[in-house]
């Protein structure tokens, strides 16, 4: 055997693991370029439908709905496509397979908390996704003519907020997926979560179009900080205070999510190791 590969200078510890796992994800996902593109094109249908509907409503009402113009709707839903890609994380539906096929056992005998595999792997995947997303975004911009007015501060906060959104959704869906430790009949629970998320995150429509009580509810729930907030940072009209409050709420939900993951994981693994697979 000849020497296999000369090493580069490497990061140590957890950052080193993240670097390797992210690189692995890029390698794997680049092999699935066509599948990734097909998936993204399918995903584009959803915001385009929302965009066409809201643009028509805006035009029929003299060019705006609740002050949101056709161009602003276009900006909102084009940024939507990037944010949606950013918050694709390990699905709770994957947990059953993970347990049944023994993948979780493989993770448990390694000296690293398994959430790091998912966080790093999906984070690496994002770089492939963003690369593939750029021409799609350009095409959508040419067709729908979005109106953007972005400051440097907003652009900077957006770069942080999309990763905040990614972390919050990763943690929450991990917690949801871990319910599988107790029962595999959890589809109804997942559906409930995703319906609430659809309505209260800004995925279906900008939150400004919801009734006041729903807006207040959305402010305190995590969903908005995985969708509507990062979109509005760059495509909305948030004040500086609102920008930073949003970031603060994201930090809060990342912390709460991490705490929930730690607690449910501890109890869930105890259950798993009592029952086996």
């Amino acid at each position: 055997m000849t020497a296999v590969r000369e090493p580069r200078r490497r990061l140590r510890g957890l950052p080193g693991l993240y670097a390797v796992l992210m690189r692995t994800a890029v390698q794997v996902q680049l092999q699935y370029r066509t599948a990734n593109y097909a998936y993204m094109l399918g995903m584009i249908a959803e915001p385009v439908i929302y965009l066409v509907v809201w643009s028509s409503v805006a035009r029929s009402q003299g060019g705006a709905v609740e002050g949101i113009t056709v161009g602003e709707f276009a900006a909102y839903y084009i940024v939507w496509t990037l944010v949606r890609n950013m918050n694709i994380v390990f699905t709770p539906y994957g947990w059953e397979q993970r347990i049944r096929q023994g993948e979780l056992s493989g993770m448990l005998v390694r000296p690293v908390h398994p959430i790091h595999y998912d966080l790093a792997y999906f984070a690496g995947w994002k770089f492939v996704v963003i690369l593939l997303w750029l021409p799609i975004a350009a095409g959508l911009a040419l067709i729908f003519r979005p109106t953007f007015d972005v400051s440097v501060l907003e652009a900077g906060i957006f770069l942080i907020a999309i990763w905040g959104a990614y972390l919050i959704r990763s943690m929450l869906l991990w917690v949801l997926g871990m319910v599988t430790f107790w029962t595999t009949r959890v589809s109804a629970l997942y559906d409930m979560y995703f319906t609430a998320e659809l309505l209260l995150s800004g995925r279906l429509l900008p939150l400004a179009l919801l009734p006041a009580w729903a807006v207040t509810l959305a402010d305190v729930l995590p969903f908005k900080y995985t969708f509507g907030y990062p979109i509005e940072v760059i495509a909305g009209d948030l004040s500086t205070r609102e920008l930073f409050v949003g970031l603060g709420m994201q930090a809060l939900w990342v912390g709460l999510g991490a705490l929930l993951v730690a607690v449910v994981w501890r109890v869930g693994v105890r259950r798993y190791s009592a029952v086996g697979n």
């Binding site: 390797v20 692995t24 390698q27 794997v28 056992s105 493989g106 000296p111």
Partner: peptide, 28 residues
């Protein structure tokens, strides 16, 4: 280490060398 003959730990889509590299990072 635990090796179960009927279960795979290697990444399916990439060369084993890259999975080895992952293990290097996991086990430091």
């Amino acid at each position: 280490t635990l090796v179960m003959g009927n279960r795979n730990q290697l990444q399916w889509d990439i060369p084993a060398l890259d999975s080895f590299e992952m293990n290097r990072a996991i086990y430091r």
